[in-house]
């Protein structure tokens, strides 16, 4: 237990460091967002408006850096990430709130499915090494070397079109009202199919390869031979003895992948114009929308940390050797 507490404290410190860097970096960049906004409005702004914008963004010159920092931390704790330029005058928290479910829904689910399929296939491929299953290796190596956004572009070029079942972009049919009815859910599923398959194809191969290699290593361990000698069923030896041990390194990889869900598949969202965080980040960069960028980076950082904490917990549950006495 004390181990977990220590880890937790460590992650808190890391999170604080990330937040601080997040605060400092934009302030090191020359120019400021208000200038950018003035340019956007083509200078059609009164001095009053400019002043109030400075206050609004927390950039009024009367505050020292330390004061700004304290201010910023206080805002963060209240969940206030400032106002977005691109979606002005929506608060960044709201903007992220609309994008996050799409990203987590699409990438989160595909990551979990990809891990499950890849691990299962890798287990079998590693167990039956030297048989037909080895044919999987060159195929997966090839697939994992394809950039997923390129796969997405190819899919759009080949499979979408005016008469096609697959839509070329978006998350649901325009004109539909989001809600838990069949029409909407069906539309969401239809729109997510191509991006999901694109991500799956490129991510599943990695899991297959690493799981297969671990299986091959573990299969020559003495305890696997002992399990065979004990006359246990093939299935039990494969699952409880070989795969159970081979899984351990993959678990940390999986947790990391979970952490990158939020920011990791930016390009797929761009290619499919999927309204998730990745697309928002892309738009934010294009519009020099610092508050939104900052907010998204913060979310990405926090989710990576959370995933790491999850990995620690999972490891603790799966590998008794990491449990410390007392």
């Amino acid at each position: 237990m004390s181990f977990l507490l220590k880890r937790f404290a460590f992650y808190l410190v890391t999170a604080w460091a990330a937040v601080t860097i997040n605060f400092l970096v934009p302030r090191l960049i020359p120019g400021d967002p208000v200038q950018a906004l003035i340019t956007k409005q083509r200078g059609q702004m009164t001095t009053e408006a400019v002043r109030s914008l400075y206050v609004l963004f927390g950039l009024d010159k009367n505050e020292s850096l330390a004061e700004q920092y304290v201010h910023y931390l206080g805002q963060l704790l209240r969940g206030d990430l400032g106002l977005s330029f691109t979606f002005f005058p929506s608060p960044v928290a709201d903007v992220i709130g609309t994008g996050l479910p799409w990203t987590v829904g699409l990438v989160g689910i595909t990551t979990v499915i990809g891990f499950a399929i890849g691990t299962a296939a890798g287990t079998v491929a590693g167990w039956r090494r030297g048989s037909w299953a080895d044919a999987l290796i060159p195929i997966t190596t090839f697939l994992s070397s394809i950039p997923y956004f390129w796969l997405g572009l190819v899919a759009i070029a080949l499979l979408t079109g005016p008469a096609s079942f697959f839509p070329a972009g978006g998350a649901y049919e325009t004109g539909l009202v989001p809600g838990w009815d069949w029409e909407f859910v069906g539309s969401v599923l239809r729109h997510s199919l191509l991006p999901a398959v694109t991500i799956l194809i490129s991510s599943v191969s990695g899991w297959i390869l690493s799981m297969r290699n671990m299986m091959v290593t573990v299969s020559s361990e003495d305890y696997v031979t002992v399990a065979h000698a004990k006359g246990l069923s093939e299935r039990r030896v494969m699952v409880a003895y070989a795969a159970r041990n081979a899984l351990l390194p993959n678990v940390s990889g999986f947790a990391l992948a979970l952490g990158f869900i939020v920011g990791g598949t930016l390009l797929v969202e761009i290619v499919f114009s999927y309204p998730g965080l990745g697309l928002q980040l892309f738009q934010a960069v294009g519009a020099k929308d610092y508050p939104l960028m900052q907010g998204i980076f913060l979310i990405i950082t926090l989710s990576v940390l959370l995933a790491n904490l999850l990995a620690d917990v999972a490891y603790l549950a799966l590998d008794p050797r990491t449990r410390r006495e007392g």
Binding site: D222, Y223, V226, A227, A240, Y241, R244, N245, D319, R321
Partner: peptide, 10 residues
Amino acid sequence: GAMNSLNPVQ
């Protein structure tokens, strides 16, 4: 291998 004959996770 007395050390390796037992499954470490069970």
